[in-house]
Simulated assay, not measured.
Amino acid sequence: MPSAWERLKTSTTRPTRMLITEPVVTFFTLWVSFAWGILFLFFDSVYLTFHEDYKWDIFTVGLAELSILVGAIIGLTFNPIQDAMYKQSAKRNKEADTPGKPIPEARLYTSIPGSLLFAGGLFWYGWGSVGRGSVHWIVPTLGIGCTGIGIYSVLMTVINYLTDAYERYAASALSATSLGRNVMSGLLPLSSPALFEHLGFGWAGTLLGFIGVALSIVPVVLVLKGPEIRQRSPFMQESTFD
């Protein structure tokens, strides 16, 4: 039985190795970290929009921020559809070592439109806020809600896919992504005042939206090339339950 020191060493080094050597973990970390960072960035930018431009008090601004939660709840309603597609994928599984088992890439299907909603919400919120209070408040609020749907979609996809693809090492893979999420949630909000002041809400939203669009390629590549990537990954091959 491994000693406490050996277990501690493994739990520290394995997530780091996976983050550096596993492209799936690396790009999923970038994807989910950016989405998570946007969540915290919104806490500053929503205040700038609704308190300074719309002259709302702090309590009312807090209600506007709840639109992220509403978006997440809407995203939750797509889970049964995603689960059904995941279970149906077992019938199409022709892999020699896992016949009749659901395909991990089936976890990604709804994340593709979800990631596009995430990016679209950033464009929507940014350009909906350029009126400096002259545009109806529902316009940027809907953009925030749309982004909330995307954030939920990205987060749940990363958790579900890494759990299915890495099985024994799922905790290590998720630990690596958690490191990225925590770092980004601390750093990205620091850029919020300078970002929106120098670029303006429209172009700041455009910049963030284009980054979101670029990262939405991650689930597309895995849907198309996922089985090949899993066959070439030592961690995925080693971690499969018999």
Rank of each mutant, 00 (worst) to 15 (best):
A84C: 11
K55V: 06
K87M: 11
I81W: 14
E105T: 02
L76S: 10
P80I: 10
F50I: 11
P102M: 06
H51E: 15
H51F: 13
S89N: 09
D44Q: 14
A96P: 07
N79Y: 14
E95T: 07
T49D: 05
T110Y: 00
F78Q: 08
A96R: 08
H51P: 10
A64C: 11
E65P: 13
S111K: 02
L116P: 04
T110M: 07
F42D: 08
E95A: 13
I58V: 09
L63H: 14
L108N: 00
S67W: 12
T98W: 09
S111I: 06
N93T: 10
S45Y: 15
T49A: 14
P113T: 00
F43M: 13
D57N: 14
F42K: 02
L108T: 02
R107P: 05
I103D: 03
G62E: 02
P104V: 00
I81T: 04
D83M: 15
A106Q: 03
N93K: 11
R107F: 00
D83H: 12
F43I: 08
N93E: 10
T49F: 13
G62T: 03
P99Q: 12
M85W: 04
P99M: 07
E52L: 14
A84N: 07
D44M: 10
F78P: 06
T77L: 13
L66A: 14
Y109Q: 03
T49E: 02
T77G: 04
Y54S: 09
E105I: 07
A90Y: 05
A96N: 10
